[in-house]
Design a protein around this nucleic acid. Structure first.
Lengths: 198, 198
DNA sequence: GTCTATACGCCGATAGAC
DNA sequence: GTCTATCGGCGTATAGAC
């Protein structure tokens, strides 16, 4: 008989990571102090370090949560025609760029991953998984005659990710109009892979 | 008669910013200490603060140097045909992505700019200048019949920047082949704006 | 102009009572 | 499990001699 309730434990950790994620997104990892997180979460530092060994471990957990939803996304995409599946994935990957808070978190993840080898490895693996799943969809769409690839399916997949990355850069434009940008993104992608423009 | 030699002064500042830029690129701004910069530059903290009022001012100066070369780039582009001019600009904008150290600096600039309103404003202005100059080239290429735009020249220009941004994300791929990626980038852009594929 | 020395505050993490 | 109290160290920036 365990003395700890694993459900409660997980819920508490989740509360901490959710709180911390908001702070990391707005202030950045290095400028967010443990005291900030504790205050925002309504706990003490002693308690926080009961759940996480280091501040960095909190960040890592946020990143892992963030990349855990891919499988569900692709499962959903596989229920559609291949090309519609691609478009669904593009929409989903674009979502964080359209939300200021989430975009800030993504910026921070990139910045941290570019310094921390362990985080870099996690990010690279995640990127590869998405790319390879996307490549399968592209290949099927090609075989089904929905598109006409002139590059490898993997290249098409990788640059689909690149286009989504490019979406973040458009945020600097004060006249940024999210829905319109996503439409343009689809147009560029459609022409790239020889799909009918919609 | 001045007692300070403005040339020496500028050279010394440049030495400090060059040294600091390398450290910011590899360690990030927040994890680079003033002591780090002083040690690498071979000076004392007292001396450093004689040239810059704060650590952040060093970063800002690096950013300003970085965005000062645009005018020369577009002057060069204007000597070519409009579409060749676009391709030249794309190559130049892509260069930092192909160099690990410079890419690290760009990541850091994005991360810092997303928190610091003053830096954000500088970045946005710089982005707009490049976009507008690019838009002129796109419009001329269109009018000259080199391309067939189906979106506004400004949208084409903005997404050209987006594609270059997307290039940075491709760095996570350990099999990243820089020249090949730039070729693909050109292909995507060419199809987007209705240019003949090369 | 450049140095050494140091002020002064804050940070991540720990100790130990309850 | 949660708290309070606190440690040891480091960070930016300044003071003031040379």
């Amino acid at each position: 008989m365990r003395t700890v309730d694993p459900v409660k434990h997980a819920e508490k950790k989740r509360h901490i990571t959710d709180t911390a994620a908001g702070l990391f997104a707005t202030k950045g990892f290095d400028r967010t102090t443990v005291a900030d997180i504790c205050q925002a979460a309504g706990i003490s530092t002693g308690s926080l370090f009961h759940y996480f060994p280091t501040k960095r471990a909190i960040f890592r957990e946020i990143f892992e949560q963030d990349s855990a939803d891919n499988e569900a996304m692709f499962a959903q995409a596989r229920e559609l025609s291949p090309w519609d599946g691609v478009l669904l994935v593009v929409d989903r990957l674009s979502e964080p760029a359209l939300d200021r808070a989430l975009a800030g978190l993504v910026v921070e993840i990139v910045a941290q991953a570019s310094r921390d080898p362990e985080l870099w490895e996690l990010a690279a693996r995640n990127e590869r998984v998405v790319r390879d799943e996307l490549a399968v969809l592209f290949q099927r769409a090609h075989d089904a005659g929905q598109i006409a690839l002139s590059v490898s399916a993997t290249t098409a997949a990788s640059w689909t990710q690149g286009l989504v990355d490019g979406l973040y850069g458009r945020l600097v434009d004060p006249e940024f109009d999210a829905p319109e940008q996503v439409v343009t993104l689809r147009l560029i992608l459609s022409r790239f892979v020889g799909a009918e423009a919609r």
